[in-house]
């Protein structure tokens, strides 16, 4: 995936979040995480991505 692709995902996700309303953001993102995790198919990799996402939160 190049920068353009990532940017497209970024845009699409932002717009999608706005269509479901702020109270539904967590559940949409959690569903997405489960779906993508299944596509990745590698538990260890998913775990380390979760840990990376956790880093710096609240900084």
């Amino acid at each position: 995936m190049n920068t353009d692709d990532i940017e497209a995902v970024y845009d699409h996700l932002a717009k999608s979040l706005d269509t479901v309303g702020v109270e539904n953001h967590p559940v949409l993102l959690a569903k997405l995480a489960l779906l993508l995790a299944r596509d990745v198919g590698d538990v260890e990799l998913v775990f380390s991505r979760i840990d990376e996402a956790k880093a710096n939160i609240g900084r």
Binding site: V27, A30, K31, A33, L34, L35, R38
Partner: peptide
């Protein structure tokens, strides 16, 4: 709670969940 709700909601369209 969030993960449970997400799994149930996802299950409406994706049986694996």
């Amino acid at each position: 709670q969030l993960m449970r709700d997400a799994a149930l909601n996802l299950a409406l369209s994706h049986p694996f969940a």
